Computed example of a mutant assay.
Amino acid sequence: MVLASTNPINIERILVTDLPIVDLKAEKSVVKKLIVKACEEYGFFKVINHGITNETIAKMEESSFDFFAKPVIQKKQASPAYGCRNIGFNGDMGEVEYLMLNATTPSIAHLSDTISNDFRCSVSAYTEAVKKLACEILEVMAEGLGVPDRSFFSSLINHIDSDSILRLNHYPPIINNNKDRDKSSSYNYTKVGFGEHSDPQILTILRSNDVGGLQISPEDGVWIPVTPDPSAFCVNVGDVLEVMTNGRFVSVRHRAMTNSYKSRMSMVYFGAPPMNACIVAPPVLVTPQRPSLFRPFTWADYKKATYSLRLGDTRINLFRTIPHAH
Rank of each mutant, 00 (worst) to 15 (best):
C121G: 11
S266F: 12
T245L: 05
R255Y: 10
E242S: 12
T17M: 07
V16D: 11
A81D: 10
K262Y: 08
S154G: 10
S260A: 07
T306N: 07
P228T: 15
N209K: 07
V2W: 02
S122K: 00
H197L: 04
A232P: 05
G195V: 03
H324A: 15
E219W: 02
M1F: 11
S124F: 03
A4K: 07
G212N: 06
Y302R: 01
I216N: 04
D163Y: 02
N177Q: 10
P230N: 13
F67S: 03
A38P: 03
S186L: 04
K75H: 08
G213N: 07
M244T: 06
F65K: 02
S231V: 12
S231G: 14
S185C: 05
S263N: 12
E95Y: 05
I115K: 00
V252H: 02
S162D: 12
A129K: 01
A103Q: 05
M93W: 12
R167D: 11
E61A: 03
T104P: 01
V237K: 00
I108W: 02
H170Q: 15
K131N: 08
D18R: 01
I316V: 12
Y98E: 08
I174A: 04
Q77K: 05
I316C: 09
Y269K: 00
V140W: 01
K32G: 14
V286T: 15
A272Y: 10
Y42R: 02
L19R: 00
Y189E: 12
D182N: 07
K132T: 06
P8W: 03
T190Y: 04
N169F: 10
R310S: 11
M93T: 05
G88L: 08
L166C: 08
V286A: 14
T298D: 15
E61C: 01
V147S: 02
P225V: 09
C135S: 07
Y126K: 00
I279V: 08
S79T: 06
Y82G: 03
L309E: 15
T298M: 11
C278A: 13
V147D: 05
Y307Q: 13
I279H: 01
I11S: 04
K183M: 11
T105N: 13
N54F: 05
N317W: 09
F270W: 09
Q215I: 08
W223R: 05
E62M: 03
G213S: 13
M267Y: 11
P80F: 04
G271D: 13
I174R: 00
L111M: 14
T104I: 13
V47G: 00
E62C: 01
G43F: 02
S308M: 12
I21A: 13
M141H: 06
K179Y: 09
L156H: 11
A38E: 05
G247E: 12
R13A: 12
T127V: 04
R253N: 13
R315V: 10
T105V: 10
K191Q: 10
I205E: 06
Y98W: 09
Y42P: 02
T104V: 15
S184L: 11
A277Y: 11
D182A: 08
A277H: 07
R13Q: 14
V286D: 15
S116M: 08
Q215C: 07
F44E: 15
T104D: 13
N158T: 07
K32N: 15
Y126N: 05
K76W: 08
M244R: 04
H254K: 03
F319L: 09
S308I: 11
Q201R: 03
K76G: 15
E196I: 05
G238P: 07
N176D: 06
K75Q: 13
H159K: 03
E40P: 04
V235D: 11
Y171W: 13
A103K: 00
